[in-house]
Amino acid sequence: MDLNDRYLKMFIEYLQIEKNSSHHTTENYEKAILHFESFMKQQAIEGFAAVSYLLVRHYLTWLHEQSYSRRTVAKKISSLRSFYRFLNREKMVEHNPFALASLPKKGQSIPHFIYEEELAELFHVSDLSTPLGQRNQAILELLYGTGIRVSECCQIQLEDIDFYIETVLIKGKGRKERYVPLGSYAIEALSRYIEEGRKELSGKAGHPAKALFLNYKGGPLTPRGVRTILNRLIEQTTLTVHISPHVLRHTFATHLLNEGADMRAVQELLGHSHLSSTQIYTHVTKDHLKKIYNNTHPRA
Score class of each variant (00 low, 15 high):
192 R>G: 01
232 R>V: 10
54 L>P: 00
188 E>M: 10
81 R>Y: 09
1 M>L: 12
221 L>V: 03
297 H>K: 11
249 R>S: 02
293 Y>W: 13
34 L>R: 13
162 D>I: 03
269 L>R: 01
86 F>R: 13
95 H>V: 12
56 V>C: 14
194 I>S: 08
82 S>A: 15
136 N>R: 03
119 L>T: 02
217 K>T: 09
124 H>A: 14
28 N>C: 01
220 P>S: 15
17 I>P: 05
169 L>K: 11
66 Q>M: 08
74 A>G: 11
64 H>R: 11
72 T>M: 05
167 T>M: 10
12 I>G: 13
212 L>Q: 09
122 L>D: 08
101 A>M: 09
300 A>T: 14
152 E>W: 02
52 S>I: 01
62 W>R: 06
152 E>N: 04
248 L>M: 01
53 Y>A: 08
239 L>E: 10
20 N>H: 07
193 Y>F: 15
222 T>P: 01
184 S>Q: 14
120 A>E: 15
45 I>R: 00
127 D>L: 06
149 R>F: 00
221 L>N: 06
227 R>N: 05
202 S>W: 11
33 I>V: 14
256 L>R: 03
3 L>T: 15
207 H>E: 15
171 K>G: 00
199 K>T: 13
84 Y>L: 10
37 E>H: 03
84 Y>C: 08
221 L>S: 07
282 T>E: 11
214 L>F: 05
284 V>Y: 00
227 R>L: 02
249 R>M: 04
153 C>I: 04
149 R>G: 01
169 L>I: 06
